[in-house]
Design a protein around this nucleic acid. Structure first.
Lengths: 341, 341
DNA sequence: CTGTTAGCGCGTTCAA
DNA sequence: TTGAACGCGCTAACAG
């Protein structure tokens, strides 16, 4: 690989000059020398070594991104937003996936620290396990002590910059919207009992119902993904409740629930209404169209990066409201209009 | 950030020794010294600087991955496989997305070269544009000249290690399978006219039909994604053909086509049968279940990494066969059994 | 088994 | 405006 000083020699200048024209910020170089260096670099097919730059500058251009699972469209969309934003800053994105294993999360933080990532973005509902959180925070502390910037997308538990989807409020608004359709008796497929964002969404939903004076819903815990929704839905059906509407705390879970209902001959929304959360685009074509709470995932990813890059001393929290989107999967029980759009 | 020689001082040993116990491969260090170094490192919260390691070793631990769009489950699943495999090798994955823009692809290759990525994985059907391919190849050449390893997932056009989905054969087998269900008159939603994998799938399909002595299908070109399928399907309907079965060269396109058919009141598979390609898991819940050709995407990603890591002088090609999966979206016209599983 | 030394490729003072 | 020299944090000979 061609190095900078080979280019310098070829151009008949010093390394310092070559560095200035090829990578320097202050461009105080004579026009002639500049073109000489540039053509030498082109001729030799010179490519900077950004690892050497990182070492010399003490600052890298890598964005570390930690997600649970790229396979989940929720994370994929956020990752997409991060990558787009990073591109604008000429930064590269290193992705680590945890598959919901906190140990892997901690390991990734360590790895990204070793990479001297300039910023680190952590996505996804942390589990409410104190001991794990403590160790994660410890690992983050050594990263930050070295000048690294951290931003989190999700629950605000780490004392760092946070892009915070208003899960609780989303659940709350969803409850009111569903009530507006005439539903009174609900069930919640609540996901893992210790998953913070699942907890928040459920809690907001419960609050909404309780403020309305409605009975508390049936709550079924289970996995956070499609299969979790499927299993929870079957479990719910076996309980033989009289609910008219089911809230799955994730679109993926709702998709699973839909499959389960279908298998059991339960028609949505005729026999049972269903709502999800996130408004994942890849689920836009499911039938019936899913009522859900929309989150601007890609924008949240970009936002997190900007937050981390523009770091200030005091941790900031950017709340991101969700938007209830009523679609066919929820029936209208008010009698006013039996058909939905 | 704590450096290696601070650790060495703390432990009362030389940097070399500290390096050996903390990062060296040959672990010929006395037990006592070893523990002394280890506890010093722990006490000081030392974290290696892998950029410095890269510089010193002349070899990095980053895997560069170039995909078109993380949002597309096809790429997301491959990326997942790559990340998992990289993890096994203690390597990190840097992802760049091209959004199908060849210029961005070339730019990413340059960036990853600058990062001194140890291997580079390029995924996705290249466009059949000679001039772009030439420039891409030129950029790859400087990367490879520096000792970088490249593997491609997709069409074999670059003279490097390739994981090659047997698109043509997949299309061929699909044609035969559909014929086995009694279909004779087909249409193909063929995607972009210059997209290699789309071309291959279509060509194989045509071959299959022609070998069977069936008439050539209607071919509609369009976008490669969900919306492309949607638009192409509408276009097909407007042509008022008498086809009984439609092959969309992508599952995402098939999903879009399904939506279009539904809007127009065309029921699948009663009025029209539909098949896709890829067997994307996130589409497993669509109704009716999609007949498709399954590709082991995650495994292909892992495979590509192994290929690149175990580089040999002569470029290798690993063909990956697809598997036809017949599901409800294709009706059985043979009359033998009017209902499908 | 351990220490000394010389780079890896680049940015950046400090002089000229 | 340009060049010489040092250092970033670490590994890898080479000695001892």
């Amino acid at each position: 690989m061609v190095t900078l000083d080979e280019v310098a020699k070829e151009a008949g200048v010093s390394m310092a000059t070559a560095s200035r024209v090829l990578n320097g910020s202050t461009r105080r170089v004579g026009a002639l020398t500049r073109t000489r260096v540039e053509s030498a670099a082109a001729k030799l097919r010179y490519r900077v070594d950004s690892t050497a730059q990182t070492l010399a500058r003490g600052e890298s251009n890598v964005v570390g991104l930690i997600v649970q699972d790229l396979f989940d469209p929720y994370f994929a969309e956020i990752a997409d937003g991060v990558i787009r934003a990073a591109d604008l800053h000429d930064m590269v994105v290193t992705i680590g996936t945890t598959y919901r294993d906190p140990e892997r999360e901690i390991a990734h933080v360590a790895t990204l620290t070793a990479q001297r990532a300039r910023v680190m973005l952590i996505v996804g509902g942390r589990m409410a396990d104190e001991s794990v959180i403590r160790r994660l925070r410890a690992e983050l502390d050594v990263y930050r002590a070295a000048g690294g910037q951290v931003a989190v997308i999700g629950q605000q538990v780490l004392g760092v910059d946070t892009v915070s989807p208003l899960s609780r409020e989303g659940g709350y608004q969803l409850a009111r919207a569903l009530a507006g359709r005439g539903h009174r008796r609900f069930a919640v497929l609540a996901g893992p009992a210790r998953q913070l964002s699942a907890i928040e969404r459920t809690a907001g939903f419960l609050d909404g119902l309780s403020d309305l004076g409605f009975p508390a819903p049936f709550v079924v815990h289970g996995g956070f993904d499609r299969d979790g929704g499927y299993d929870s839905a079957l479990e719910l059906l076996d309980m033989n409740t009289d609910v008219t509407c089911v809230f799955a705390v994730t679109d993926s879970m709702a998709a699973g629930a839909l499959a389960a209902f279908r298998e059991r001959g339960v028609q949505v929304p005729r026999d049972l209404s269903l709502a999800g959360f996130n408004d994942v685009p890849s689920l836009h074509d499911v039938i019936p169209a899913l009522t859900t709470v929309r989150l601007p995932l890609a924008r949240m990813g970009a936002l997190a990066l900007e937050l981390a890059l523009s770091h200030e001393d005091v941790p900031r929290v950017v709340p991101v409201p969700g938007e209830v989107v009523l679609r066919e999967s929820v029936s209208d029980l008010t009698g006013a209009s039996p058909d939905l759009v």
